[in-house]
């Protein structure tokens, strides 16, 4: 048996001014999970450590917390895999306020979820007395995303949320996906329109942290990409995100490289005067610090090769 130091974040905002770490020496037994270990420490050493738990079998999502800086579901994570130089550091989830020790205020998480009409909006002409048809293939389109247990691990470790608290976040986007891709939902287009707006699906920065931390098969980044694909296919192009994608393709397809002077105004819209004015301060600051892209945009040498790739792709798509 190896001895491991559990370095646990402790904070009671009611009685303490600032958080601290408390160390616990723990004899690691083989095959135990992080939740087992915490329960042993709580039972034998310090009953006052606060954390959430319920099912203990990776389906309720209560025991999400951070181990060594990354969100995990404590009940399904082997303790032995977390030991680094004899230490395991345990913190509460990120992007949310601490209530007590490892317990955070989940209200921002639930609040986000409620923004995307998280329920089926079926065709009202369906006969309520009969089951509706759905093929197994259609079911499989939402099979992965419906494994989401709303544990908040992705919300905790999302880098976009860290800088924009109004961003819907990975789990909420996955919930939106679940209905966009459900053959029984009748509001696909409205959903795609809504989710393409500011703080929605285009505000994800593709860091992939959500999918890396997701303890289920939901893998939010993959779902986010699928929503974007569906939005582009459905012609939901009247928003910054879609215009950015289209502009990106236009400039690379034309010159083989990104025209960084073209893309920002293309994304906000060439006739969007307030939007364009909003870009000016950043542009001027870049100019003053010499970070601006060249004013005259040149194509790469073998631009014809790039154009060939684009036309082959267009043919393939047809």
């Amino acid at each position: 048996m190896d001895s491991v130091t559990f370095r646990i974040f402790r904070f009671d905002p009611e009685t303490e001014d600032s958080p601290r770490y408390q160390d616990y020496e723990y004899e690691l037994e083989p095959g135990v999970t992080l939740l087992n270990s915490l329960n042993t420490i709580r039972s034998k050493q310090d009953a006052t450590i606060a954390y959430r738990m319920s099912c203990g079998s990776a389906i309720c999502g209560s025991c999400a917390m951070r181990a060594n800086g990354h969100a995990v579901l404590a009940c399904k994570t082997q303790t032995s895999e977390l030991v680094k130089d004899g230490v395991i550091q345990i913190d509460p989830l990120g992007n949310m306020k601490v209530i007590h020790d490892l317990v955070v205020d989940l209200e921002p998480f639930w609040g986000s979820l409620r923004k995307v009409k998280p329920y089926l909006q079926p065709d009202t002409t369906n006969n309520p007395e009969l089951e509706r048809e759905q093929t197994q293939e259609q079911f499989l389109l939402i099979d992965d995303v419906t494994t989401c247990i709303l544990c908040g691990a992705c919300f905790s470790d999302c880098n976009a949320l860290e800088v924009d608290e109004n961003f819907l976040g990975p789990a909420t986007l996955a919930k939106a996906h679940r209905f966009i891709y459900d053959s029984r939902d009748s509001k696909t287009e409205e959903r795609l329109e809504d989710i393409s707006e500011l703080h929605g699906v285009w505000d994800c920065t593709h860091c992939a942290e959500c999918s890396t931390r997701c303890p289920t098969e939901t893998k939010p980044l993959a779902r986010i990409e699928e929503i974007r694909e569906a939005a582009m296919k459905a012609g939901v192009h009247g928003n910054n995100g879609a215009r950015h994608v289209l502009g990106f393709r236009e400039t690379v397809g034309k010159s083989g490289r990104l025209n960084e002077n073209y893309l920002p105004p293309r994304s906000v819209g060439f006739f969007n005067i307030p939007g364009l004015l909003g870009l000016l301060p950043v542009g001027i600051r870049m100019l003053m610090r010499g970070k601006n892209p060249p004013l005259i945009h040149h194509s790469i040498d073998k631009v014809d090769e790039v154009k060939k790739i684009f036309s082959r792709f267009e043919e393939y798509r047809k």
Binding site: Y119, L120, P122, N126, P128, E129, L130, E131, R132, E133, Q134, T135, Q136, Q138, F139, I142, D143, T146, F179, D182, R184
Partner: peptide, 21 residues
């Protein structure tokens, strides 16, 4: 009746080759 109701509420069920629950 209960199963049909849950299906209408939006529950995703695995399906048969005939597209039934």
């Amino acid at each position: 009746r209960t199963i049909v109701e849950m299906e209408h509420f939006g529950c995703a069920f695995s399906r048969t080759d005939e597209n039934k629950i």
